Amino acid sequence: KELVLVLYDYQEKSPREVTVKKGDILTLLNSTNKDWWKVEVDDSQGFIPAAYLKKL
């Protein structure tokens, strides 16, 4: 599985998104959309702007 590093805090703005903190390491589930990547946070899944993430 691929991991990503969160570069900036992000507060979810819709139920399909997730809240993350700078420095979090998350599992990347889908990066086919260049603007929004799907990640797994704890036991939930959701989208975060790709610009907030860096592949490890």
Rank of each mutant, 00 (worst) to 15 (best):
K1Y: 13
K1W: 10
K1H: 11
E2N: 11
E2D: 11
L3M: 11
L3V: 07
L3K: 12
L3E: 06
L3P: 02
V4T: 02
V4W: 05
L5F: 07
L5S: 03
V6N: 00
V6R: 00
V6F: 01
L7T: 04
L7R: 04
Y8R: 14
Y8I: 08
Y8H: 13
Y8G: 06
Y8D: 08
Y8N: 09
D9R: 03
D9V: 03
D9G: 05
D9I: 04
Y10W: 08
Y10I: 02
Q11L: 12
Q11V: 14
Q11P: 05
Q11D: 13
Q11I: 14
E12T: 14
E12C: 15
E12L: 15
E12S: 15
E12K: 15
K13F: 09
K13R: 13
S14D: 11
P15I: 09
P15W: 08
P15E: 12
P15F: 07
R16K: 11
R16E: 11
R16V: 10
E17D: 06
E17S: 10
E17H: 08
V18L: 15
V18F: 14
T19N: 08
T19V: 06
T19D: 05
T19K: 08
V20I: 05
V20P: 00
V20H: 03
K21Y: 10
K21T: 08
K21I: 06
K22S: 07
K22V: 06
G23Q: 01
G23K: 01
G23P: 01
G23S: 03
D24T: 11
D24H: 07
D24M: 15
D24P: 01
D24V: 07
D24W: 15
I25D: 00
I25A: 01
T27S: 08
T27G: 06
T27V: 15
T27M: 09
L28D: 00
L29N: 02
L29V: 11
L29Y: 03
N30Y: 06
N30G: 06
S31V: 07
S31A: 12
S31E: 11
S31K: 06
T32S: 14
T32R: 10
N33V: 04
N33S: 09
K34D: 12
K34C: 10
K34S: 11
K34I: 09
D35H: 15
D35L: 14
D35P: 01
W36S: 03
W36Q: 03
W37K: 00
W37T: 00
W37C: 03
W37E: 00
K38G: 05
K38D: 03
K38V: 14
V39I: 08
V39W: 01
V39F: 02
V39C: 07
E40L: 12
E40M: 12
V41Q: 07
D42P: 07
D43F: 10
D43A: 11
S44V: 15
Q45Y: 14
Q45E: 13
Q45D: 09
Q45P: 09
Q45F: 13
G46M: 15
F47P: 03
F47A: 03
I48P: 02
I48F: 02
A50R: 11
A50W: 03
A50G: 04
A51M: 12
A51R: 15
Y52H: 09
Y52N: 08
L53Q: 00
L53N: 00
K54H: 11
K55F: 07
K55C: 10
L56S: 03
L56Y: 07
L56R: 01
L56C: 13
